[in-house]
């Protein structure tokens, strides 16, 4: 099986987000970047498929220079090689122009299945994989919590989460894009031998020229969406503590819920 994993490097989930004064983005100074947590599930699932069926796992990522660290982390977990879309022209992309660049990098590759997180925890759009699947003319299954690839590698059965905790079981012919959700597996920790071996594994850097796309098709220029403004939600005000006898409290509470919070 030739297994691809689309992976993104994102700010650590513990990052305290600060908006820049212009409101055009976040302050990136001092941010620690990590592999998108949902992509960890994708990497783990890819490695499990490889362990069961043989083959190779290739990590495909678009991002600035620093993203090599996340690619290298996936290689340390056991992936075989990396493809890094890295060029200033790719900066400022939206979901569409990201999918466009990823598709250009993926088209020349041989693949039987593509995995990725169900969304990246930075912009939380959850759109890249659907757009990418469309551009590659393959199916996609979203929010997958269980995956079984058929022995012949031609199809897979995926379970996906739907409302109310119910599960939907989908059989899909391969190649397809599988968008991974928490619960699919427990991602492994990069082992010391894995880290040592990762140093020697190849990362193919693809710049704009190598991607075969024009500057107008990618990054900010190729985006269909323009972000006009970033702002944080207003800070939560301190809670109100009511005092008194239970009867009074109930009356007060109902009044506040109705008139102030307008919740009832």
């Amino acid at each position: 099986m030739d297994i691809l994993v689309c992976m993104k490097q994102v700010p650590d989930t513990e990052t305290k987000i600060v908006i820049n004064p212009e409101g055009t983005g976040i302050v990136t100074d001092g941010i620690k970047y990590v592999m998108n947590p949902y992509d960890e599930f994708a990497v783990e699932e890819a490695l499990k498929i490889k362990e069961k069926m043989g083959g190779t796992v290739t990590i495909v990522s678009m991002g600035p220079q620093r993203a090599t660290e996340a690619i290298r982390t996936a290689l340390a977990m056991g992936a075989d090689k990396g493809v890094h879309l890295c060029d200033d022209a790719f900066e400022g992309a939206d979901s569409y122009s990201t999918a466009k660049a990823l598709a250009a990098a993926i088209k020349p590759l041989s693949y039987d299945i593509i995995l990725g997180g169900k969304q990246a925890v930075d912009h939380d759009n959850a759109q890249v994989y659907a757009a990418l699947a469309e551009l590659l003319d393959i199916s996609h299954v979203s929010i997958v919590t269980q995956l079984d690839v058929a022995e012949d590698g031609k199809s897979a059965v995926a379970q996906r989460e739907v409302e109310g905790g119910a599960r939907e079981v989908i059989e899909v012919s391969l190649p397809a894009f599988i968008a991974c959700q928490k619960g699919l597996n427990e991602p492994r920790y990069a082992s010391l031998p894995g880290i040592m071996k990762a140093k020697k594994k190849p990362i193919d850097v693809i710049d704009l020229a190598k991607s075969g796309l024009s500057a107008d098709e990618v990054g900010e220029k190729g985006a269909k969406l323009k972000i006009r403004k970033f702002f944080l939600p207003p800070e939560r005000e301190a809670g109100k503590i009511l005092e008194g006898e239970p009867e009074e409290l109930a009356t007060q509470l109902v009044k506040l819920l109705r008139e102030e919070a307008k919740a009832i």
Partner: peptide, 15 residues
Amino acid sequence: PEEYRILRDSIRRFT
């Protein structure tokens, strides 16, 4: 260096 950061982060996550 990157190699050490990957090592540190892996052990840190495990911890």
